[in-house]
Amino acid sequence: MRYRVQTGQGGSWIVALAALVIVVVFAALPFFGSRSLMQDLFFVFTMLTLAQFWNLLAGYGGLVSVGQQMFVGAGAYGVFAAAILWGINPVAGLAVSAVAALVLALVSAVFVFRLNDAYFAIGTWVVAEVARLSFAQWKAVGGGTGTSLPREARRNMWGADWVEQVTGLRAAAAMDVVSYWLALALVVATIGGIYWLMRRKTGLALAAMRDNPQAAASAGLNAGRIKLAVYVISAVGAGIAGGLIFMQNGRVSPDSAFSVIDWTAYVIFIVVIGGIGTIEGPIIGVIVFFLLQSLLADLGSWYLMVLGLLGILIMLFAPRGLWGLISGRTGFALFPIQRRLFIEERED
């Protein structure tokens, strides 16, 4: 029997070309776009990054976490501690964010991986609370009330001078441009990285574990190790995003950096509304989320109620999300990761 396994679809190169054009336009935006547009897009890019990593965790890895705010917070404090205590440039501080998230991920894994399913979810929430309360005790970075990024650290941000000279923008706007480019780079690297991961053996392993854990184990997959890897990757990603978000914000406090609503609830709704378990889903989700927020943000708690209800309705009646409704009808995928088996010739 001859067969081949195909992952790509006809027209994939059109999608790739379109993606390239979109990224180039976004990258050139600071030269013609307004500052508020860039701030909006910064928000969209960072939320999309968090959503992609939560989706990797829950949608592909089957690990529903309600504790991703721990890594956002660790990343945020990474940048601030590096700048305040050791005088490290905030952009370089993002490396400290990644390391802080990595360390917390490895330590917390010892605890949360003793729990399964729903208990894993609340377990991650507990360790995130422990992290929040512990960081609130760290007096050198402001304790419970938090602290600001020192002026000189903001002024010396790598690349800001260059942007100032090239675009003629004021210092504050130039710093926004640097943050914006970093966010764009982060989200492109995230989507590209996850797509690459899913098309490799890792993606096949995750799909196998999700579809039939017993069969996957008997084929020699070590589920524990793969899940740990997914947990750590998602943690580091969220950590870098957190460092970037609070570097741009300029102020950090335990309650804002470890906020379960901002960094986990919103992210879960983005993924669920868009479509869990796909790369396209979070992209659709973040667009819907941003539109809803622009329309309803003035309504305060009504906004969150609408978001919660929408999440519940989608989970009940269209569990594959908005993208699932589209791709379910057409079989179309922007990021094809499904493997199709074509049997070319039968011997019997």
């Binding site: 089957g62 529903v64 979810a121 609830a265 709704f269 109620m305 919660g308 999440g311 989970m315």
Partner: peptide
């Protein structure tokens, strides 16, 4: 996944 995400949504709805 569904019971977790639905009750999480419910939590946010009730609170608000």
């Amino acid at each position: 996944l569904p019971p977790l995400l639905v009750t999480f949504g419910l939590s946010v709805v009730i609170q608000n």
